[in-house]
């Protein structure tokens, strides 16, 4: 593995990623011009609602779009100095589950119902360690089950996914993802299907494991609370584009994009006094087949059109130093609106 000293490229670097799907209804522009990077030991939170492109981004990194003949991916994905968009299927397959692994939302449907949980973990291990015999792989799987906090791992090894509780199932899924010590772990809504107390356990587990293994983690979720728990950096996506990006503290304390304000305003929060009303974003998310001209958020933005009609004609670029935002509003005006109109209602 290369060390940063000789090479300036971050561990994971995504440059101008575009993902399109050709469907009968038209071209779905799932991700447009996404650019970000991530170092080992860091956690990146990707936030967005359904259809924002957050999950498609992760599928593209893992190369899982490759089996879909209607998918078109362009741009660059660099993982540890290896470019993945132009790499061969076989090259990407070898990385998948090895150097980069993924945890999915619903562990019940993400595990095969006909194979024991243990055998599925063994399978994941052996595909990347072809010389290893079954007995060793089995021990490794049992170790992993124990490591993620599953009691009686020898016995649970032979159980099927449906015999596990929701939380235990997600632990098993994590064991399966971590069995090959991945350097990059992508978690796509890993706690959405779980109860809060179980969610707290799983988030705790992911945090511990990251400390232990030093992997880079991408946490994809719609829940701002979950992101705030784990992420060092936050990426807010809307309509397939990154619209705000920055250190977690900045994004939560000084959110810049009106959509981010809307997301925060939509959430009732336990750490604040009860508000009379919530302040949601009006309207509904756009269709990825027919994105609005200019800024994709303009139909729902209360400030669109404030400074001429640029919002309706020109796509705003993601601009800024550490904390970047894609919005036509001038920085001072944004700050003023946030302080005077938004913050008091959060």
């Amino acid at each position: 593995m290369s060390i940063g000293a000789t090479n300036a490229r971050p561990f994971l670097e995504i440059k101008d990623l575009n993902v399109r799907f050709e469907t009968d209804d038209g071209i779905v522009q799932a991700v447009t011009g996404s650019t970000f990077s991530l170092e080992k030991g860091q956690t990146l939170g990707i936030v967005g609602e359904s259809g924002s492109g957050k999950s498609v981004t992760s599928l593209a990194v893992l190369g899982l779009h490759r089996t879909r003949s209607n998918a078109k991916v362009s741009g660059e994905i660099w993982l540890d100095d290896e470019e993945l968009v132009t790499a061969s299927d076989e090259q990407v397959r070898k990385l998948r589950g090895g150097k980069m692994a993924m945890i999915f939302q619903d562990p019940l449907s993400a595990m095969h119902p006909y194979f024991t949980v243990g055998s599925q973990i063994v399978e994941a291990y052996r595909v990347h360690h072809p010389g290893v015999n079954k007995k060793v792989a089995r021990e490794r799987a049992i170790d992993m089950l124990a490591r993620v906090g599953i009691p009686q791992p020898e016995r649970r090894f032979n159980d099927y996914a449906h015999q596990f509780s929701g939380g235990m199932r997600q632990r098993a899924m994590i064991a399966m993802a971590l069995v090959n010590d991945p350097a990059l772990l992508i978690a796509d809504e890993p706690t959405t299907a779980l109860d809060v107390t179980v969610q707290a356990q799983i988030l705790d587990l992911i945090r511990d494991l990251q400390e232990e293994f030093g992997s880079a983690v991408i946490m994809i979720t719609h829940d701002l609370g979950v992101v705030a728990e784990l992420a060092d950096e936050v990426l807010v996506m809307y309509g397939g584009k990154v619209i705000e990006k920055g250190p977690a503290v900045d994004v939560f304390q000084q959110p810049q994009h009106p959509y981010t304000w809307g997301l925060l305003g939509s959430m009732p929060r336990l750490d604040r006094e009860v508000r009379d009303r919530l302040n949601p974003v009006k309207g509904t998310p756009p269709s990825l087949i027919n994105l609005p001209q200019g800024c994709a958020f303009n139909p729902r933005c209360p400030y669109a059109g404030r400074n001429g009609d640029r919002s309706f004609t020109e796509t705003p670029e993601l601009r800024g130093d550490i904390h970047k935002v894609a919005c036509h509003l001038p920085a001072e005006e944004r700050t003023k609106i946030f302080q005077q109109e938004v913050l008091p209602n959060l």
């Binding site: 893992l62 899982l64 089996t67 397959r93 070898k94 990385l95 998948r96 589950g97 090895g98 692994a101 993924m102 999915f104 993400a110 595990m111 095969h112 399978e123 994941a124 595909v127 990347h128 399966m176």
Partner: peptide, 9 residues
């Protein structure tokens, strides 16, 4: 999808 994500052929 999980099977593919594991890197199975």
């Amino acid at each position: 999808r999980t099977a593919r994500a594991k890197g199975l052929t």
